[in-house]
Design a protein around this nucleic acid. Structure first.
Lengths: 207, 207
DNA sequence: GTCTATACGCCGATAGAC
DNA sequence: GTCTATCGGCGTATAGAC
């Protein structure tokens, strides 16, 4: 049991085995430098491995590493969203749960949020769904749709409402990730949540 | 005079000479496939040039092409923003002018907006300012600051207000660029402007 | 100013010993 | 299962003819 469980929480099965070391090193480097600026040599070094060939024992090729990361992150995101939806029926509370998750991840697992919000996965995973066509995203749209039916959310195009809502949330988190907003994400969470929610809520308090 | 002046409007000096052909080809390819998935061979072919060596007659290296694009786009953006600021004193009208420009560019020069909103320029232009530290961005913050002083805009952190405002605007444009929103940008402009403006305006009409 | 031809290096990927 | 050693190719960049 290592004590470096910082960024791994969401990164699937937490095992201190070599494949996971490789994944964590790759996630960090991809987030920091981008996929194409990261060589297998970089990953090997960061994972305390002497030979790049060792990587091929665990992954088919470089893309496969990125793919595994992509799948881990979205699988975990899916599970988290399902849990959030089970806890409450109200769209407002479900959305609040997702926002809470995103802000926590930004502070606790910034590499994962960098992967989600900043990297253009379609550039190195062309066969994979772009984030906006991912099951996780579809679930968010569903939440907003049912919020509209329930009268919680204004009657506008659900896709557009989702675009506005996460435009605010994600842009704020991007600004935190790149240091343009210099405090922890949690500092901005309350007012950012209010701004985003009031934007789509039916009975907005206006300020 | 060629008739393909589609995407060139903002791309600086419009001349049908070879350097400009190269820049236009590169812009298109970078926007479509990303910088690292685009080889000099790709650019040469798209620019109707037989030899990659010709490119080196006009640009120092591959990065220099991206740098020239970066400078052209931001120089033109700067000029446009200055013009907009000169036309009116009111922050609301200045912001509306910028929003109008962004939506028009998304419909008329999508490659430029892709470059601005989607590409991670810091991955291939590490020495250049990230977009958020660009003079153009600083001017937007200034507009919002003076809007706060004038009582037009609510008294919140100008950086945060800018983040919210362009979170909505830019995310909407990103959704148009990738086809997730399937109509022209101009279709979404009125309600998106209202959503973004009411979010930061002091006397919001609420809906 | 554009071409042909070619050099060079990096990095992804493989073979095979231990 | 990790290592050493090496290959092959792609893509950047250069030399030099026309």
């Amino acid at each position: 049991m290592d004590q470096d469980i910082d960024n791994t929480q969401i990164a699937a099965d937490i095992q201190a085995d070599t494949p996971n070391e490789i994944l964590l090193a790759a996630l960090k480097l991809f987030a920091e430098k981008g996929y194409f600026n990261t060589s297998l040599g970089d990953i090997a070094k960061a994972a305390d491995i002497k030979a790049t060939s060792t990587i091929y024992q665990h992954f088919g090729d470089k893309q496969a590493i990125a793919l595994k990361l992509y799948e881990s992150i979205f699988d975990n995101l899916n599970v988290s969203i399902d849990e959030i939806r089970r806890k409450s029926q109200k769209s407002s509370e479900q959305l609040h749960g997702i926002v809470d998750l995103f802000f926590k991840l930004t502070d606790d697992a910034p590499y994962i949020m960098q992967f989600l919000l900043v990297l253009n996965t379609s550039e190195f995973l062309p066969k994979q769904n772009p984030i906006l066509e991912t099951p996780a995203f579809a679930k968010v749209v569903k939440i907003i749709q049912s919020g509209i039916r329930a009268g919680e959310i204004r009657n506008i195009d659900p896709i557009l409402a989702t675009t506005y809502f996460f435009g605010i949330i994600n842009n704020t988190l991007r600004m935190v990730l790149n240091g343009e907003l210099d405090k922890k994400a949690e500092v901005y969470q309350p007012q950012t949540w209010l701004a985003a929610w009031n934007l789509i809520a039916k009975k907005s308090t206006c300020f």
